Amino acid sequence: ELSWTAEAEKMLGKVPFFVRKKVRKNTDNYAREIGEPVVTADVFRKAKEHLG
């Protein structure tokens, strides 16, 4: 699991709890794919757009 900024964690907190774990995993995987060592708010937004 990658490191997350406080802002990205806050955004994740707005995701319904029953899918939060999956969203975190998918976002981590997306960040790795694009070469990001940390999940930022920008990476979170891009993952959301990319993953739907």
Rank of each mutant, 00 (worst) to 15 (best):
N29Y: 08
R24T: 02
K21L: 13
L51E: 07
A6T: 09
E1S: 11
P16H: 07
V39K: 00
V39T: 02
L2D: 03
A31K: 00
P16Q: 04
D42A: 08
E7W: 04
A47L: 05
G35C: 06
E1W: 12
A47R: 03
F44C: 02
T5Q: 03
G13M: 15
D28R: 03
F17C: 10
A47W: 10
V38Y: 07
A47P: 01
V43F: 05
A6P: 13
H50G: 07
E9L: 15
N26K: 12
Y30S: 01
W4K: 01
V38Q: 08
N26A: 15
N26E: 15
A8M: 00
R24L: 04
F17I: 13
A41M: 07
V15E: 12
K48C: 14
K22C: 15
K46W: 08
M11W: 05
A41S: 07
W4D: 00
A47E: 02
P37N: 12
N26T: 12
D42S: 07
A47G: 04
D28T: 07
E1M: 09
S3G: 08
T27G: 02
R24W: 04
V19M: 15
W4C: 00
L51V: 09
W4I: 00
G35T: 03
V23Y: 07
N29R: 13
E49Y: 12
A6E: 13
R24P: 00
V38D: 03
R45D: 06
T27I: 15
K14S: 08
K48N: 15
A6C: 09
K46Y: 05
A47F: 12
L51P: 06
E1F: 10
L2V: 10
D28V: 07
N26L: 15
V15W: 08
V39R: 01
E49C: 10
D42I: 06
E33M: 15
E7S: 06
T40P: 01
K48Y: 14
G13F: 13
E7C: 06
V23F: 09
K21D: 15
L51N: 09
K14Q: 11
E9T: 09
K48S: 14
F18C: 15
L2Y: 05
V39P: 00
K46T: 06
N26M: 15
G52H: 13
A47H: 05
R24N: 02
K48F: 14
E36A: 15
S3D: 09
Y30P: 00
R20I: 04
H50E: 06
T27V: 15
K21N: 14
K14R: 08
E1D: 11
E49A: 13
Y30H: 03
T40A: 02
A8S: 03
E36D: 04
I34Y: 09
K10F: 12
E36I: 07
W4E: 00
V15Y: 13
V38K: 07
E33R: 10
S3A: 13
R45M: 13
I34Q: 10
M11R: 03
G13V: 08
E36N: 04
K46V: 05
D28C: 05
L2H: 04
M11K: 04
E1L: 10
A47K: 02
V43M: 04
D42Q: 07
K46H: 08
E36V: 11
F17N: 09
A41D: 06
A47D: 01
V43G: 02
F18W: 15
R45F: 08
E7M: 06
K22Y: 13
S3I: 14
A6M: 10
H50K: 10
R20L: 04
N29G: 08
A6F: 09
K21R: 12
K22G: 07
K46P: 02
T5G: 02
R32M: 08
K21Y: 09
P16Y: 05
V43H: 02
T5M: 03
V38N: 05
N26P: 01
G52L: 14
T40Y: 01
T27Q: 01
E33K: 10
N29T: 10
W4T: 00
H50V: 11
T27S: 04
F17R: 12
S3Q: 13
P37Y: 11
E9V: 10
T27F: 09
R32D: 03
W4M: 01
V23C: 07
V23M: 08
F17S: 12
N26G: 09
K25R: 13
R32P: 00
V38H: 06
I34S: 08
R20Y: 03
G35F: 05
Y30Q: 01
E36Q: 08
R45S: 08
R32G: 04
E36L: 07
G52N: 13
G52I: 13
K22T: 12
E33T: 10
N26H: 15
L51Y: 15
N26C: 14
E33Q: 11
R45C: 08
N26S: 11
E1Q: 12
L51F: 15
R32V: 07
V23E: 03
V39N: 00
G52D: 14
P37G: 09
F17Q: 10
T5P: 00
L51W: 15
K22H: 14
V15D: 04
F44Q: 01
E1P: 15
E36R: 05
R20C: 04
F44G: 01
T27K: 02
R20F: 02
A8P: 00
G13E: 14
E49Q: 11
H50A: 13
A31P: 00
V19S: 14
D42L: 06
I34F: 09
R20Q: 08
R45N: 10
F17L: 14
K14G: 06
K10C: 13
A31L: 02
T5R: 02
S3N: 10
N29H: 10
L2N: 04
L12I: 05
L2R: 06
A6Y: 09
R32Q: 07
L51M: 13
F44M: 05
R24S: 03
E33N: 08
A31G: 03
L2Q: 05
Y30N: 01
N29S: 11
I34W: 09
L12A: 02
R32C: 06
G52V: 12
A8G: 02
A41L: 09
V43W: 02
T40G: 03
T27L: 07
T27P: 00
E9R: 10
K10E: 14
F18P: 14
E9N: 06
D28K: 02
K25W: 14
A31E: 01
G52A: 14
K21S: 15
D28Y: 03
V15T: 06
R45V: 12
V19T: 09
I34M: 13
E33L: 12
A31C: 07
L2A: 05
V39E: 00
R24A: 05
K10G: 09
K14E: 14
N29M: 13
V15N: 03
V43E: 02
R20S: 04
K48R: 15
K22N: 10
A31R: 01
K48I: 15
H50Q: 09
P16S: 05
Y30A: 02
P37W: 11
E7P: 04
L12H: 01
T27A: 08
F17A: 13
E1T: 11
R32E: 04
A8V: 02
I34G: 04
V19K: 12
L51I: 12
T5D: 07
M11Y: 05
R24G: 02
K48E: 10
K21Q: 15
K46N: 07
E49T: 10
E36H: 07
P16W: 07
K46S: 08
F17T: 09
T5W: 01
V43K: 01
V39F: 00
P16D: 06
A6I: 12
K10T: 10
G35R: 06
